[in-house]
Design a protein around this nucleic acid. Structure first.
Lengths: 336, 336
DNA sequence: TTGTACGCGTTATCAC
DNA sequence: GTGATAACGCGTACAA
């Protein structure tokens, strides 16, 4: 069943049927109706491949999540939220989403080839690409529109991305602890090969400096965006007697809580803990986490809209969007 | 840059280039090498749409997650794990994954039309389709291979699916509580419009009956696969003094723990709690959850392999696969 | 072993 | 307002 068949049944040419389907002008109302009825009756839907061949458009956007470790190692709602935001915004403009997820066991090189050789997408969204990922070197040469989620580690000026102001957010988190009178404020970082992790560390240092507090390397633990890293980090930091911990992510903070619990350290009485992201675990943790909220769902939505703007030619040149963050005060820092 | 261009540069015909690309026989080693080199040098990759048009294959499998409520309302790693398993198995056979997620705000009807009219997939996987979903009535008429994750609510005989033996698993959970000497065993169900929820309830009843214990409707709370339902359910059940709760899902159990905590009911001393799934929160809950583990990642893998088997013509007719479950004993039930 | 020629189902560009 | 007809890029019988 194709255009030709419909045309024959309607007693018109295939051109006319095509025009009807694409809501093109120059079709009389009566023929348009007649053709529409036949299409409806036959449940006809044009062949996507044929259409893509000639229009060079597939109405599909590729989404790449290179590192999925968090999915396995933590109760992390970050990726699902991002996907939900992306999917929602893409569907609103009748695009579909082609998803590639990296594997822990897999070599990234292979994934990268799959992605960049797949000609069935009009544009691409990359989420949280680490600085050492092999895809990095290929980003600039790809012909299809690309939007990064989170600030790229390299070439940030030449790439479109949506992120948050992590430096400022890191400052906010640390300032909150300072305002509570904490003096020995530790920081457990996320991946430093992701700009987010780096920038939050920068914000932490800025805040200390601005407050005239010393920056003590003993109080900085280079971690990863995992609960396990938070756990190990807190175990390590306890010897240096921190009175507060700024965790680079909520999942990190969960590990911190657990290590503190095991060591008999009371949160927030002995040590204030602040997280980052405000993902679901922040509310269910005991005590509930004070944290910096970032709009994850919205990040996905905006990324989708940005790539669609590029695909549809509504924007040109790289664009950078920073979304606002917000301090959410709960129980883990004490009176706030 | 297309086949023709490569052919010209290599001094051969388009057909030969096509043969080389598709590893077809009847090409001399020397020409094959020469053509390969040119392809490599030009970084040529055949146009997917053109190829799909003639082969009627896209090497894309569609994955539909109709209801994503859990993503938003609970710290739920179920979907990510499923997606990871699917993605992994699909990629292993060089297929890509087209993902549709339902929206809380959206009408399912629209999503359904999008999915069933999208001609760019060779097969489809549906995850946890509820009995009342509008897609139900269209499942049997769809021409492309379909695999359901979890037993379909209707027409289970005519559809391929991968699931677990939820009845037996429900029995196992309940039997464990019985073996611990519990007498007033309550059950908070998941969605009863999902077969899984229903079957686990059935297993619960079976186990009680087999043990000669009464089935008390007051001790059965019809919930949903949400933490909130677990919370509400436990609040409600407390008046009937249960000494154990079988939660239809781990996220439900998390809500149970919270409600118990707030009511001053000690877990497991006063009430044993057993969950279902063994998703991440089971290990991080306090106390750690005793639960029935189901192989979520593997469910995704198997579903992918099943749909690929159908697409590639390796199997015919509907197939049903049940994966094994396992009792995981932790802290929330007491000595076990 | 290699090349020719046709068809896949659609859109776009013409003529009418 | 409508209908031929030429692409789009590839796979593949069939001929050479």
């Amino acid at each position: 069943m194709n255009l030709e068949d419909i045309a024959r049944k309607a007693g018109v040419s295939r051109s006319t049927v095509s025009r009807v389907i694409n809501d093109a002008p120059n079709v009389s109302a009566t023929t348009r109706d007649r053709v529409r009825q036949i299409i409806e009756a036959e449940k006809f839907h044009p062949n996507a491949a044929a259409r893509a061949l000639v229009t060079r458009r597939t109405d599909v956007i590729g989404v790449v999540i290179p590192s999925v470790e968090n999915i396995f190692f933590t109760d992390n709602s970050y990726w699902p939220m991002l996907l939900a935001g992306l999917g929602q915004a893409l569907r609103a403009e009748d695009y579909a989403m082609l998803l590639w997820m990296g594997e822990v066991t897999d070599n990234d090189e292979r994934l990268m080839r799959k992605v960049s050789n797949h000609h069935m997408v009009d544009g691409l969204v990359f989420a949280s690409l680490t600085g050492d990922h092999p895809m990095q070197s290929h980003l600039l040469e790809m012909r299809s529109p690309i939007v990064m989620i989170d600030k790229p580690y390299y070439n940030a000026d030449c790439l479109s991305y949506v992120s948050i102001d992590n430096v400022r957010a890191g400052e906010m988190a640390t300032e909150h602890l300072i305002k509570l009178g904490r003096k020995r404020i530790a920081h457990i970082t996320g991946h430093l090969t992701i700009t987010d992790g780096n920038d939050r560390l920068q914000g932490y240092k800025n805040a200390l400096r601005n407050a005239g507090l010393p920056i003590d390397d003993n109080l900085i633990y280079e971690g990863l965006f995992h609960r396990d890293a938070g756990y190990a980090g807190m175990k390590h930091l306890l010897q240096f007697k921190p009175d507060a911990v700024f965790a680079g992510g909520d999942t990190i903070a969960i590990g911190v809580l657990q290590a503190a619990h095991e060591a008999g350290v009371r949160i927030p009485d002995d040590v204030s803990v602040i997280g980052f992201d405000d993902i679901d675990v922040a509310r269910t943790a005991i005590p509930q986490l004070t944290t910096i909220r970032q709009p994850v769902l919205r990040k996905g939505e905006v990324a989708a809209r940005m790539v669609l703007d590029m695909v549809e030619g509504r924007t040109q040149g790289p664009q950078q969007v920073l979304l606002p963050t917000e301090l959410v005060i709960r129980k883990s820092c004490g009176a706030g």
